[in-house]
Design a protein around this nucleic acid. Structure first.
Lengths: 205, 205, 205, 205
DNA sequence: TATGAATGAGAATTCATTCAT
DNA sequence: TATGAATGAATTCTCATTCAT
């Protein structure tokens, strides 16, 4: 049964590869690109250093891949949350809820996007600003639609989008560094939604 | 002639020290602590590597000093702007104005605070979060006062403070990366003030 | 084939570590701690510089370890030689014989102890004087016993111990720097024993 | 009065030069050649670093000069002491007395000769062994004469000379590191003389 | 003469990467 | 596939030495 065997092997390999990538995300998220060494990563994944280079070509490529993947995941989740609702208030609520969900279940994902690629190799800086730009554009589109529907006050939606993205991230970083964050999730979500609605100049019907 | 010590020699030395520190701020601001090498700094300052160590004990100490100095300057400027006015709207306007001023005249200062200290070296992480905390507390105090005076709607002022700090910074980073930023200063200031007033739930009398 | 770990790989690694340590002893013995560079050591061992740091944490730790190990070996050998006999003259003879043996088979060992740790780095100075003190004490105990048994004349045995230790070392250094030392071993041993007996005020029965 | 002026200037210059050399001896004696930096020396002498290079061509040359001068002084003093007496016992007594005198008044001189040049630049190593050789030869000549006069027992006087030189130095190092050495000078001298007479196989008339 | 700012070669150490097993 | 020993370029930092003032 060569197919099964191959399939099995493949699954195993993929499992290991995935485990190593998760380890890498954790390490990159915690230390940032430069301070994270390949040795840190393989120690976290509990494999030998040679194994790293069997699965990945090099540190930079892996980081780029992880960042891209993570960024895509985050943007898609956000997009989905926004698209799943029709009114602006509902969109914002869904988006915040989704963001906090990710942050609680995969804090490393959020931290990787926020600090992982800061101040490093030019290619990474590029990548990071690419993500920020897409994130902002997503909010910008949402705000533009809301403005058309007169759900929010007239404003420069680009700047509001920037402010929302930056504001939510700072709130999230603070929340993640809180010791008792688990018990404050709901309240934090509520606060973030209020902040978002106010900042967007939401017009209560 | 036994070498005139305390004359203009001293002035020259101070000038050079300052020039080197400015060069260091630029490099740290652009690349972050880890990616910035001492060679980068001395190249920017156009001196030999030994000269760096004549003026400063080591890379980390210099960074800490620059960060602390810059953070203090930023916080004092903000505090001054806030204290120079009485109403919340006026405080916010003054603060934004001051922030944009700094960003235009000393963009490296802003960038150093935003990206310079990201990534490991525990002492630096500590320092950076210390600054963020102070920044947020400053906004928090201002919001709390405004709330007492019923200038803004009831809210969790801590979270709003986080959101404001993060939002303004993101807007500023975007502004600084804009090619034609010079011509957009006034509009940006106006947008930021509007964003801030909305996000704070400002109650128009 | 998942890389045989605990087989002869381990043996090889141990062999290499030992080879590198021996190279290091030679270099330290010849140049002293400060003048010996890590590059000298890896050149002597014919490996790359990174290999040094794969096997040892740093130059100072390695030196301390080598010095300690060497000192312990020398002191134990001396102690054994002294304990293997009962009369003072026999003890002295055994000790000198053992010392010359070591010096002929492992000249670097002797030189490391004599010149390796001279010159600053407080920890090394400490270590070196610790060894000298133990060496002197060993002779002192032997002399004290001999005095009790009236094998030697009344004297300040501490000072005699210092003199013996220093005298033997100087004779040994001269012997080692001699071109035809191999042919003079027996005569040197005889001379050293005579010197030792005389210096100790040995009372011929 | 150009002559006086020149003479004055010269004296001043010589005084400063001498002060700097004394400072250098102290530093070299305490730290050894490598660990002693030019900055250490100028700090000890309380002058600027440039001044060092006005008076001396470089660190190595100065060390060589100091070592040579010190060695010559030590050898001459020893020679004088030995020549001032006729019998072996008297010679030994005078030599020990002179040695201890120097060690008490100028401990740095003794330490410089003992540890200053160990393990360093080949030229220095050469110089150091040159001094040891001369020192040993001086004792050797004295012993040879004593042997002719049948003041000491038959022996290999070369080896005894080595042993005496090494033994006295070790005793001296221990004495210098003693806290209350001042009060023990006389006793130490007596012990050293006894040690020397015994080690030389002195025949009491 | 005297100063000390400036230099850069060289030392210790780190770490991404390779490759024989 | 998996391992980890081995490599060496790159980094931080020191220190002897020079030179304009």
């Amino acid at each position: 049964m060569p197919y099964r065997s191959t399939e099995n092997t493949r699954r195993k390999k993929d499992a290991k590869r995935t485990a190593m990538m998760q380890a890498a995300v954790r390490v990159f998220a915690q230390k940032g690109y430069h301070a994270a060494t390949v040795r840190d990563i393989v120690a976290e994944a509990d494999v030998a250093i040679g194994t790293f280079y069997f699965y990945f070509p090099d540190k930079e490529t892996l980081f780029n891949h992880l960042f891209e993947e993570t960024a895509t995941f985050m943007l898609q989740t956000l997009e989905q949350a926004l698209n799943s609702r029709t009114t602006f208030a509902a969109k914002l609520e869904a988006a915040v809820q989704a963001y906090v969900n990710i942050a609680f279940y995969e804090p490393a994902v959020v931290q990787l996007l926020l600090i992982g690629g800061v101040g490093s190799v030019p290619a990474l800086v590029e990548r990071r600003s690419g993500y920020r730009e897409k994130l902002i554009r997503t909010w910008q589109r949402t705000l533009a639609t809301a403005l058309e529907h007169q759900e929010i006050m007239p404003q420069n939606v680009r700047r509001t989008a920037e402010g929302l993205a930056g504001g939510f991230d700072e709130i999230m970083l603070n929340l993640l560094s809180l010791p008792g964050k688990e018990h404050e999730g709901q309240e934090a979500i509520s606060d973030m939604i209020q902040f978002g609605l106010r900042a967007s100049g939401y017009i209560y019907a």
